[in-house]
Amino acid sequence: MSLFGLSGCTGASVEAPVKFPVPVVEMLPVTMGLVLNAELTDYVHEEKLEKNGTWVIDIGAAQQPMFENLFRGLFANFETLSKVDGQSATHNGVIVPSITQVQFSIPSQTRTDYFEVWIKYQVQLFDEQTLIAEWPITAYGKANVRNYGLVSTNQALTAAARAACRDAMAFFALEFSAEPKIRAWLDNETGALNINPNNNSASS
């Protein structure tokens, strides 16, 4: 985790943490390619709030460790690719995640003690160069400023960003194989392997 200093009396500049767990889920028996575009890995959300200064959340640095650990737990094998090249000899499909929107709120806006962060992802699944499915994911994280002492702004916003990243991973890990178009593609790829999507679905 790395933090930058406060920018003036209000506003903050933080970087989402880069340490994430590997999900404990039933591995899908496919080899998946992972394309992490620069637009994703360099993603920085900057927003000026009226009377509350400029806020910068560097989400991009967290994306590579986040998706690599996610894929390490979810797929039998994965490899990082530079692009969707159609050379499918070594992998069944290729996933290209992107961030389409980031929003956040600060305690003075919501009159609560919480920083909140929302991240919208668009996940594309390709088989060779054919787009099989587009899957939107909305992740949410919050953190209570009262948990982080007197100089709490940066730490609380960082914690909210980390929680949003973990939420994205959790949703991806548990719902990937339940998404209808992805499910159909997986059935086709894995043949008679008969993966039960319920094994990786949250009960609540």
């Binding site: 767990p21 590997v22 999900p23 404990v24 889920v25 929680a163 973990r166 939420d167 991973m169 959790a170 949703f171 890990a173 548990l174 949250a202 009960s203 609540s204």
Partner: peptide, 19 residues
Amino acid sequence: MDAMFPWFEPRTAPANTQD
């Protein structure tokens, strides 16, 4: 939380013992 990820996250944590 890390060892049991993602089953005890705010989105997924069991709400009661029935789960």
